[in-house]
């Protein structure tokens, strides 16, 4: 793991692998990284907004749980974006198949599950008030 992290910060190490690719592929890879970074920033922003704008919810500390979950998810997305970018760049330089990843599916499931839980929380409150 530390080896992988050291490699992110060592552009020379990446350039020592394989052939220099068509620069357009590197730019596309970088844009994909940026799209993931924005996804992570959106989750972080969502967490920060939940912490300060959500009204009190029926379960105690549910607001804080939502905020922390979104913040952590955003951080993970950002870090995973670098790892995926580095592995993709390596694969492009080596002419290998691009790395497959379960991460998008897992993220989608997590966000979907979170949305369902929130719907339940809103319904519980609506029924409690009605």
């Amino acid at each position: 793991m530390w080896e992988a992290i050291r490699r992110w910060f060592d552009p020379a190490d990446l350039r020592s692998v394989g052939e220099p690719p068509d620069y357009r592929f590197s730019l596309a890879n970088e844009r994909t990284f940026l799209a993931w970074l924005r996804t992570g920033l959106a989750l972080v922003g969502g967490g920060l907004a939940a912490a300060q704008f959500l009204p009190p919810l029926p379960m105690s500390h549910l607001r804080e749980v939502i905020a922390v979950a979104l913040l952590l998810l955003g951080g993970i997305v950002a870090i995973r974006a670098v790892d995926h970018w580095a592995r993709t760049e390596r694969a492009i330089r080596l002419g290998q198949e691009l790395p497959a990843s379960r991460f998008p599916a897992l993220l989608a499931l997590a966000v979907g599950a979170g949305a369902v839980l929130l719907v339940i929380a809103v319904l519980v409150r609506a029924i409690g008030e009605g």
Binding site: F9, P11, V44, L71, G74, A78, A81, V82, E89
Partner: peptide, 20 residues
């Protein structure tokens, strides 16, 4: 393209998340 900017930017985003 690439270089240290990418991991640094991602670490910055992680730092924002953790301080939150």
């Amino acid at each position: 393209t690439g270089g240290r900017t990418l991991p640094l930017v991602a670490l910055g985003a992680l730092g924002l998340a953790l301080s939150g």
